[in-house]
């Protein structure tokens, strides 16, 4: 694995310097999280004013499971996000193949269309979104959330993935087709495997989008507490006129981020590697 030979002193100094910079960045990244974790275990936390809790306990976590529908929420969120992820990867793979490999009439217009429609923030047209869900009969239904999340994330990620697909040489397709492969076979056997790093990013990002989506879910899921996704449930703990339950909220955030960390970790092997040991495709 070690590819850089640490022969000279200069190299070593550079390595040390790099690690120092990385470590300081780690500190900056971690401060808020350390704080969230402290709060999650803290007792009697009144506000975010930075008084570090003095007493610690597991009470907040226990309360999550006894007083709130945390288990339902996280289950709903995982369901929504997983299916959104699968659908998005499908949509993005197909669309990106179309954009990157086919020469067709209206290509640039279609691409611009996908980019432009997304400028309009959905968050601000909840009245319209609600009407659509009424018309489709998808109110209070996880399916509705899955469909709209898949749309939002596919639309955004097609733009991202196209750039990557364009870097995969077309010669590979031609070589495959010379060997008698169909276009579909080329896509599945040659291009998609090469695009693994990008598909991993698409998968994670679509999961994250679905997992964090709040505005739409809170508008269309009005019946019952157990049908809510986690983001809406979390919000209900802090959006209050007076009392805000910081510790509980932090505890929920800590537990709630675990699925995403696990997902990231299991996907990590698809996009690491790179410069020194990465697959060379030319």
């Amino acid at each position: 694995m070690k590819t850089i030979r640490k022969s000279s002193r200069k190299d070593r100094a550079i390595q040390v310097l790099i690690h120092c910079l990385l470590l300081s960045l780690v500190v900056i990244t971690l401060i808020p999280f350390a704080y969230i974790i402290l709060m999650a275990f803290g007792k009697d936390v009144v506000g975010t004013a930075t008084t570090i809790p003095t007493e610690y306990s597991f009470d907040n976590f226990a309360r999550l499971f006894t007083e709130t529908n945390f288990v339902d929420w996280i289950k709903n969120s995982i369901i929504i996000s997983l299916i959104t992820m699968v659908l998005s990867v499908l949509f993005v793979s197909v669309s990106v193949y179309v954009f990157s490999r086919l020469r067709f009439l209206g290509k640039r217009k279609l691409f611009n269309f996908i980019l432009l429609v997304q400028i309009f923030p959905l968050m601000l047209s909840m009245v319209s979104i609600f009407r659509i869900f009424v018309m489709l009969g998808l109110l209070n239904d996880l399916k509705g959330l899955i469909i709209i999340n898949a749309t939002v994330s596919s639309a955004g990620l097609v733009l991202l993935a196209k750039g990557y697909f364009d870097t995969i040489p077309y010669e590979l397709d031609e070589a495959a087709m010379v060997d008698g492969a169909t276009k579909f076979q080329t896509l599945v056997k040659i291009i998609l495997p090469l695009a693994k790093p990008m598909l991993a990013v698409v998968a994670i990002q679509s999961f994250v989008i679905a997992y964090n989506e709040y505005a739409i879910a809170s508008t269309i899921m009005t019946q019952g507490l157990d049908g809510m996704p986690l983001a809406v449930g979390l919000q209900s703990m802090i959006v209050g006129q007076y009392g805000t339950n910081w510790s509980l909220y932090c505890a929920a955030s800590v537990l709630g981020s675990i699925p995403m960390i696990v997902l990231f970790y299991s996907m990590q092997k698809y996009f690491i590697g790179g410069l020194t040991e990465g697959s060379v495709k030319m």
């Binding site: 808020p32 969230i36 979390l234 981020s257 990231f264 970790y265």
Partner: peptide, 18 residues
């Protein structure tokens, strides 16, 4: 990497308030 992706995966509202 695991550390650096944290800001991306934890709900933004909470980290903003932090």
């Amino acid at each position: 990497r695991i550390i650096f992706i944290l800001p991306w995966v934890i709900p933004t509202v909470i980290t903003l308030l932090m």
